[in-house]
């Protein structure tokens, strides 16, 4: 979290930079479009995602669209198009990203001849709306990650516990949105025996912990020498895994993969989807 004192001066600095060079803003938009394409194309070219636009329950879609707003504002505040130091700027950037997500999705779907003039308006808006969420997350990430080195200042700050968990949720959600709509998730869950599921849980947790603490990627976290390994395991890795599980469950429910199923098959599908979720959560702690 930034402190108000430092925020004021840098915020002014930001604003003067913007008014001085509108070209910079356009470059930012360009990076946003790049990020949206990079992150959302796999979904825009997935058959299940097209169908979801009109088969998905309207209220679940509305809930997803509304939940995306605080999510985008949170990401924008944490990593942002530029270093954002006030919530006002964060909200503005989040909305720009949402807009980029909607426009790029509409263009891509039209390009693939998935949107045509004769279609009912619900189908057109539904198809775009489903795609707009991953695309807008991509737009925000793209603008920060594809940018030049000046964003790196953000890495040096000590992240608070809450924002660390939030970034894990973003990472998990990101990979889950890619995979939850596909039939393979439930198919894998049906193929697995419970023993396979147990192995998947152990694998997910181990990889998550190893990614962040053991194999020391750039941006990896270190344990101070007097801290036993299980401190970080209990405080970060297990909560991260539970977040990945919850996000998986939400994504599966949202895309109607759990309907009619009972408790245990739903749990198996959740474990399957939480595996990529866990990798995404761990990667988010390193990258973002």
């Amino acid at each position: 979290m930034q402190k108000a004192g430092a925020a004021g001066s840098r915020d002014d600095d930001d604003r003067s930079k913007e008014t001085a060079t509108p070209a910079k803003f356009l470059v930012g938009i360009g990076r946003g479009v790049g990020g949206a394409l990079l992150f959302a194309l796999p979904m825009q070219m997935t058959m299940e995602m097209w169908a979801l636009g009109f088969t998905m329950d309207s209220w679940r879609l509305v809930l997803l669209l509304v939940l995306a707003i605080p999510l985008l504002v949170g990401i924008s505040h944490r990593i942002g198009f530029e270093e954002t130091f006030s919530w006002k700027v964060a909200v503005r950037d989040a909305m720009i990203a949402y807009g980029i997500g909607i426009v790029t999705s509409a263009v891509m779907l039209s390009l693939f001849k998935l949107l045509m003039a004769g279609m009912p308006p619900e189908e057109i808006t539904g198809k775009i709306a489903v795609q707009a969420i991953p695309a807008s997350i991509g737009a925000l990430l793209g603008r920060s990650q594809l940018g030049s080195g000046k964003d790196d200042t953000g890495d040096e700050q000590q992240s608070s516990y809450g924002s660390e968990l939030f970034m894990m949720a973003v990472g998990a959600l990101f990979l889950n949105l890619n995979m939850a709509p596909t039939e393979e998730m439930i198919l894998i869950a049906y193929k697995m025996t419970p023993w396979h599921a147990l192995a998947t849980i152990v694998m997910s947790i181990t990889l998550m912990h190893a990614f962040v603490y053991a194999v020391s990627f750039k941006g990896g976290h270190e344990l101070s020498s007097d801290t036993p390994w299980w401190h970080a395991f209990i405080r970060f890795t297990l909560p991260g895994y539970v977040i990945a599980l919850i996000i998986s469950l939400y994504a599966l429910w949202s895309f109607e993969r759990l309907d009619g199923g009972s408790f245990t098959p739903a749990m198996m599908a959740m474990i399957v989807l939480a595996f990529p979720g866990a990798i995404g959560a761990a990667a988010a702690r390193l990258i973002l």
Binding site: E156, E222, L223, S224
Partner: peptide, 13 residues
């Protein structure tokens, strides 16, 4: 550049 996990942690963690 890398964040360090220390011993001291808030009870909420």
């Amino acid at each position: 550049n890398s964040r360090t996990v220390g011993r001291g942690a808030h009870w909420i963690e």
